[in-house]
């Protein structure tokens, strides 16, 4: 029996349906889990994704792409395969892709997190024969605190900065993390000033009807007095740049799962590191994998060989696979 999905040079391929999931080279048909750059790449002839992902794909890949959106859990027939999308909880529109061929079900997780952040959808475990999981934070040192506790820390940090006359700047990936922060900090009543990269994504999401608080684009004309006591959100690329220097004195808070380890926070010159991630932690990975009841697990990007070995030792047949979502022990700090 032919496997439902295979790992090829171009990406994860479904022979029965003739499509790729998150291909890293141009393909005829691309099924996309979510709109981050390492999963949704330019150049394919036709894209299929969730309805919520469509405007984000158009933002990232261009208005003129050929893209079809589908509803959550809705089954789409592609050749001999049945395809459906299920919430992955990673960012707005993010999905796991379920593919069934001849009674065999495989699920490709894309990126996922198990805690419901309020805006990215609630992760839904999907029963399957074979599960393809990410492993960005596949080590037991990565165990997240609940986001309510972390947002409590962030708010305390903002109050402290205000008291000592410092500008609060949070660093967060522009698509995903930034919206999670805005949604969960909306109740503070602060004005949110954002970098251009975040502003563009925000406009697209607002017009798609997402319940996000208003933001203000920072321009060279934005008076410094307007920012006082308010919050600035900027992408990682802006950390310690000339763009940021003009807000001095400021306190830089980096929001990323990598902040779990002190050395990373020090390396980024962060004044505060908040270990808040849009990926599942160790506990979340293990729980999700068990919940699928999969007979076989393929472990992709992250600590793939470590997680695979641990699963094997715990009687879950597993194998590490190399993908272009990241080499072994990928530590890309862009989408975390």
């Amino acid at each position: 029996m032919q496997p439902v999905l295979t790992f090829t040079e171009t990406g994860i391929y479904c022979p029965a349906g003739g499509f790729y999931i998150d291909p890293w080279k141009p393909a005829d048909r691309a099924v996309i889990t979510h709109a981050h750059a390492d999963h949704a790449r330019i150049g394919s002839r036709h894209y299929l994704c969730t309805k919520d992902s469509v405007p984000l794909l158009q933002l990232r890949l261009g208005k003129d792409i050929s893209v079809q959106g589908t509803g959550w859990g809705e089954t789409v027939k592609i050749g001999g395969a049945e395809v459906s999308f299920h919430p992955a909880g990673h960012m707005i529109g993010s999905a796991q892709v379920k593919v069934t061929v001849g009674g065999q079900t495989w699920v490709a997780s894309g990126d996922y997190k198990t805690e419901n952040d309020g805006i990215s959808g609630a992760f839904e475990p999907v029963r399957c024969h074979t599960f393809i999981t990410e492993s960005t934070f596949g080590l037991p040192i990565y165990r997240w605190r609940p986001q309510t506790a972390i947002f409590g820390d962030i708010e305390a940090w903002m109050r402290e900065n205000e008291a000592s006359g410092k500008q609060s700047i949070l660093v967060a990936y522009s698509l995903g993390k930034a919206q999670r922060l805005l949604y969960n900090l909306a109740h503070t009543g602060k004005r949110f000033f954002v970098h251009g990269a975040i502003y563009n994504a925000h406009q697209v999401l607002l017009s798609a009807g997402w319940p996000l608080p208003p933001v203000e684009l920072i321009t060279p004309e934005t008076p410094k007095s307007d920012l006082k006591g308010q919050l600035i959100i900027a992408p990682p690329s802006a950390a310690d740049s000339a763009w940021m220097k003009r807000f001095s004195p400021y306190s830089l808070g980096v929001c990323s799962g990598w902040m779990q380890v002190r050395g990373n926070a020090r390396r980024m010159n962060a004044d505060a590191g908040f270990a808040i991630s849009d990926h599942a932690d160790w506990t979340g990975l293990l729980q999700s994998i068990r919940a699928t009841h999969a007979e076989k697990v393929f472990v992709t990007h992250g600590f793939s060989s470590t997680l695979a070995r641990y699963l094997e030792e715990n009687n879950i047949p597993a194998e590490a696979v190399r993908t272009a979502f990241g080499g072994e022990e990928e530590t890309t700090e862009t989408t975390v």
Partner: peptide
Amino acid sequence: LPEWLFNECYHTVGD
């Protein structure tokens, strides 16, 4: 935790 997994963690944290 098994020893090998502890060691993997140690090499990543570095402390």
